[in-house]
Every structure is written in C-alpha cells, then in structure tokens.
C-alpha cells in the first residue's frame, strides 16, 4: 500500500522522503530518544540520505512489507516509526520514537494508536506486536493504553552502552477489545 497517510486529532503519519534526512538525524541526536535505539552512534545526515534513497525506491512495490513513516505535528517532523509485516503478512511489528520535547502530552499514545489501527483495519493483520526496553516505563504505558498486553520479558534482547538490556514483548490480536481512541 502506498502512499500511507494516517491522521489523528493532533499528529499525522506520512511517508518518509529523502528530504527528511536532516530531521531524522536531529531526532536521533536527541539523547533521550537515542538512549533506547540499538545504534551505537547517531547516523550522519548523508547516511540517512543514502538509506532513504534506497528505501523510497522500494515503497511502491506491491508486496510492500516495510512502512517507515514520519510523524508530524503541524507539518513539522517530530518523530518516526512504522510497521514491519511478517513474511505471511498476517502479523505486524510496530515501533515509534518521538522527540523528547513533545513527551508527556499524549502524542505518543495518539501516534501508536494510529499505527495499531492501520495494522488491524487497513493491513488486516491478526496480531500486532512491539518490544520495549524494560526500563522504558513511559513507552510500556503507551502500548498498554493503545491495547497491547505484556506477554513476557526477553532477556538480553539488546546491547546498549556496554550493557545487555531486557525487553518486554507486547502483543495485541484483532479480537482483543480496543481501548477507545481519542
């Protein structure tokens, strides 16, 4: 499916473009965002450009399985995230990051709910899952609020700042009750 455009009351998801390279670099340079990313260093703008050129060439394919999107507020890029489909196309993993200056206003919850609804209603996947660092309590709350349940803790799931970190597995299935949106 292309192009994807998801509009909430305040934030929107749209397709990433090569022109977003600088904004993506700036977003990842936010220490509070970068803390939970697996990268060992923030990619340079040129690296984002190269990635986006390659990625944008694939998004019109009919068998699209990767949806990397930009999160915007009043037209400004304030986050990024997306959906990865399983090979069968029946399960989807969601992920997102939001610039820390916008934390605490419910914007992440709105952004995550848009992704969940996109997976269940538009892509028609049966199961939506996500992982969070066990210490990322804000993100765990967001996922709970949009309807994902905690299903277990995966030990040693990621390596960051010389330490192994555990991650929570969150899942929601199409027949689960969906919390009220908005």
């Amino acid at each position: 499916m292309h192009p994807v455009e998801l509009k909430g009351p305040r934030v929107s998801w749209r397709e990433l473009a090569v022109a977003d390279a600088q904004d993506m670099h700036d977003l990842m340079s936010d220490p509070q965002v970068f803390r939970y990313m697996s990268d060992t260093e923030v990619p340079e703008v040129a690296a984002y450009e190269a990635f986006l050129i390659e990625y944008c060439a694939t998004i019109t394919e009919p068998e699209r399985i990767r949806y990397k999107l930009a999160l915007t507020l009043d037209g400004e890029l304030i986050g990024s995230g997306g959906v990865d489909l399983s090979p069968s196309g029946r399960k989807s993993e969601i992920g997102y990051m939001l610039a820390s200056r916008h934390w605490g206003k419910g914007l992440a919850t709105e952004a995550a709910a848009l992704l969940v609804d996109f997976c269940l209603d538009t892509l028609g996947t049966h199961r939506v899952w996500a992982t969070t660092d066990v210490t990322n309590h804000a993100s765990r709350r967001v996922l709970a609020k949009v309807g994902l349940r905690e299903e277990g803790v995966m030990r040693g799931y990621s390596f960051k700042d010389d330490v192994w970190h555990d991650s929570v597995m969150h899942g929601m299935v199409a027949t689960d009750e969906r919390p009220l949106r908005g």
Binding site: M154, R155, G171
Partner: peptide, 22 residues
C-alpha cells in the same frame, strides 16, 4: 521460559499461542 505470544501461529484454521524460551 520467557513468555507466551498470544495467537502467534496460524495452524489448521486457528490462531495458536506460542511459548518463548531462551
């Protein structure tokens, strides 16, 4: 044992849970 992914595998017309071990 680390957890149970709900309705994770489609088998014989039904979604089944899967347990994760590591």
């Amino acid at each position: 044992y680390e957890g149970t992914r709900r309705e994770d595998v489609f088998k014989d017309g039904k979604w089944r849970d899967s347990v994760t071990y590591a």
